[in-house]
Computed example of a mutant assay.
Amino acid sequence: MSDKDITRDTNRGSGPDISRRAFTRVAFTVAVASATTVIGGRGFASTEEEALANDFVPDSQDTPMLLRRISSLKMRKWEDYFDSLNNDAILCDTNDRVLHYWGADGFYRVYPTSVPLSEEMTRRGRTSVTLKRPDPDWRPTASMLKRNPALPPYVEPGPDNPLGIRALNLSWPAYRIHGTNDIRKIGRQSSSGCIGLFNEHILEVYGRAAVGTPVLLI
C-alpha cells in the first residue's frame, strides 16, 4: 500500500470534518426534535428545515414550561387558501397558533403567535393589510376598558407598548398583526383579538408585507 493510499484510508476513517459550532447546532436540533416528539409533534417552527431555538422562551430561568406555549409545526400549501401570491399572502391559524407567510418570490415561514383569549374575541375570515405602523402607539378599545377599567387610556411607542415595535392594521377595525413586548404571550390564548408575534418576527413580516397583502384568519 502506498503512502497515498494510507492517507486516503485515514481520511476516510476519520469521517467529515465537523466544527464544534456545527456539531453543537446538530446536537441541539436533535434535542429539539426529540422534545417535539414527546409533546405530540407540536412545538415552535419558523422554517421547514428546523425548529426555532431562539423562539423557546421559558416561564422563568428555573422552570421552563414548554407545554404552556405550543404552536403547530404543520406546514401548509398556499394554494389551499389563496388564488395567487401576487401580493404575498398571510394565513393566521388560531387553532395551531401560528402565522404562515408566503412571498411571491418563494419565501415561506411559519411563526408562533398569540391568539385571542376566547372564541367570542376571535374573528375569522378574509381581510387585508390596510396600514403599516412602524412605531405603533396604543389605545384600548371600549370593550377592553369595560373588561379592565384599570387599563391606561393611551400608551406611547416604547417598551411598555402592547403592540411591540411594528403593527399591521387589518381592514377590520381594531384588528392587527403586531409584535409584543411581553414574550410570555406567544403560543397562548392571550390577546383581545389581535395576532401577536415576537418582535424579531414582526420585523420580518412587516418588512415583506404591503398594503393590500391578503390575510386569512382560520
Rank of each mutant, 00 (worst) to 15 (best):
M1D: 08
M1W: 11
D3N: 15
R12H: 11
R12T: 11
G13E: 10
G13C: 11
S14L: 13
P16F: 13
P16C: 06
P16I: 10
D17A: 13
I18H: 07
R21N: 11
A22K: 12
T24C: 12
R25L: 09
V26F: 15
F28D: 01
V30N: 08
A31H: 02
V32R: 01
V32T: 02
T36D: 04
T37L: 15
V38K: 14
V38N: 02
R42T: 11
F44D: 05
A45K: 00
T47G: 05
A51H: 02
D55H: 08
D55Q: 03
F56L: 09
P58H: 00
D59C: 00
D59G: 13
S60G: 14
Q61I: 10
D62L: 15
T63K: 15
M65W: 10
L66R: 00
S71R: 01
S72K: 07
M75P: 07
R76L: 14
K77G: 10
L85T: 08
L85A: 07
N87E: 08
L91V: 04
C92F: 07
N95W: 04
N95P: 00
D96Q: 07
R97T: 03
H100I: 04
Y101L: 14
Y101H: 12
G103K: 03
A104Q: 12
F107N: 06
F107K: 05
Y108G: 06
Y108R: 13
V110F: 03
S114I: 05
L117H: 10
E120M: 09
T122L: 10
R123C: 09
R126N: 13
R126H: 09
V129D: 00
T130K: 05
D135S: 12
A142W: 02
S143K: 12
M144W: 03
L145I: 06
K146V: 00
R147C: 03
P149D: 04
P153V: 01
V155D: 04
P157Q: 04
G158M: 10
P159R: 09
D160P: 03
L163Y: 03
A167Y: 03
L168F: 10
S171Q: 11
S171Y: 06
Y175Q: 08
R176T: 03
I177M: 09
T180S: 12
N181W: 12
N181S: 09
N181Q: 11
I183L: 15
R184K: 13
K185G: 14
I186Q: 06
I186S: 07
Q189W: 08
S192Y: 14
C194G: 03
H201T: 04
E204Y: 06
E204A: 15
R208K: 15
R208G: 08
V211T: 14
V211K: 15
L217A: 14
